[in-house]
């Protein structure tokens, strides 16, 4: 396993390089030679790279990415708190489980853009409006994940703890929480991808500096390369967060339990 590691990363890099090369060829042939696309409608690797240099040079790319990340993380943290609490309550009270859960299940399927009109009416074109969209876009899925994770804890874990004298509070903190952790982490991971997507729906509507805004500016300037650049950055941030945070977390939690 370990031995194949370097070649695998190299392989992935070669694959990416291949895609970029192919993309460049498609641009050369499709735009310059055959005129299938107008040059303003088809980004090229070279164009994206020059956009990258320009936006990096004037500092706006880093600022936009930093702002978006901060906003995303803030909204995500609020979602974790609210969603976790809602999930816990839905699981704990049979009344809520029977009546609220189906509703949350339904709301969860709403695409986050659907919350944009509300957020503008309630908060105007502000930071809070974006956060509202992020929270609405991810908290409900987090609540469902938390509820499911708790419900899937094998009853025998609780029974064993009860007969060892555990209090209700100890059952929650020392049994249910650690037992549901692997599932909670999947929920957190999914919640993050929802939050990150919702963030973009929110950012494109306001004038707050961020990746969404940079993307819209690109559109307004008919600069397809800038649009493409922002899309790539959004994907890269997504991959980076997954690798750095969730992979590490999963590895730590799964290894102990023999789930790896």
């Amino acid at each position: 396993m370990k031995k194949n590691r370097m070649p695998r990363i190299l392989q992935q890099l070669f694959f990416l390089a291949g895609i970029v090369a192919l993309w460049q060829i498609v641009c050369l042939v499709g735009v310059d030679l055959l005129h299938v696309w107008k040059s303003y409608a088809m980004p090229s690797p070279a164009g994206v790279f020059s956009s990258f240099c320009r936006l990096l040079g004037d500092g706006s790319l880093l600022q936009a990415t930093g702002n978006s990340l901060l906003r995303g993380v803030t909204g995500y943290a609020i979602s974790i708190l609210l969603g976790g609490l809602l999930g816990f309550l839905m699981n704990h009270f049979p009344f809520l489980h029977n009546n609220l859960r189906p509703l949350v299940m339904g709301i969860q399927t709403l695409p986050s853009v659907c919350w944009v009109p509300f957020s503008i009416l309630w908060f105007g074109l502000t930071q809070q409006a974006i956060l509202f969209v992020v929270v609405m876009g991810s908290a409900f899925s987090m609540a469902m994940a938390a509820d499911n994770a708790i419900a899937n804890v094998p009853p025998i874990y609780k029974k064993a703890a009860l007969t060892m004298g555990a209090t209700q509070k100890q059952i929650y903190w020392k049994v249910i929480l650690p037992a549901s952790l692997p599932e909670l982490i999947s929920g957190l991971k999914q919640g993050w991808s929802f939050a990150w997507r919702a963030l973009m729906s929110g950012e494109v509507m306001t004038t707050c500096i961020g990746l969404g805004q940079t993307l819209i500016t690109g559109r307004n300037l008919a600069d397809i390369n800038q649009v493409m650049l922002v899309m790539i950055v959004i994907v890269l941030v997504g991959i980076l967060i997954d690798r750095l945070i969730f992979r590490a977390l999963e590895k730590h939690v799964y290894k102990k339990r023999g789930l790896l």
């Binding site: 094998p154 025998i156 874990y157 029974k159 064993a160 703890a161 009860l162 007969t163 060892m164 004298g165 555990a166 209090t167 100890q170 020392k174 049994v175 650690p178 037992a179 952790l181 939690v253 102990k256 339990r257 023999g258």
Partner: peptide, 30 residues
């Protein structure tokens, strides 16, 4: 249920997130 009547179940009642020592000490920790 209470600690004066501990139950040992047939299987699957140990906690996979704790090591052997922590599992054995779990009741005392409670």
């Amino acid at each position: 249920p209470g600690a004066d009547r501990v139950v040992m179940f047939q299987e699957h009642a140990l906690y996979p997130w704790l090591n052997v020592m922590e599992n054995v000490a779990f009741g005392m920790q409670l």
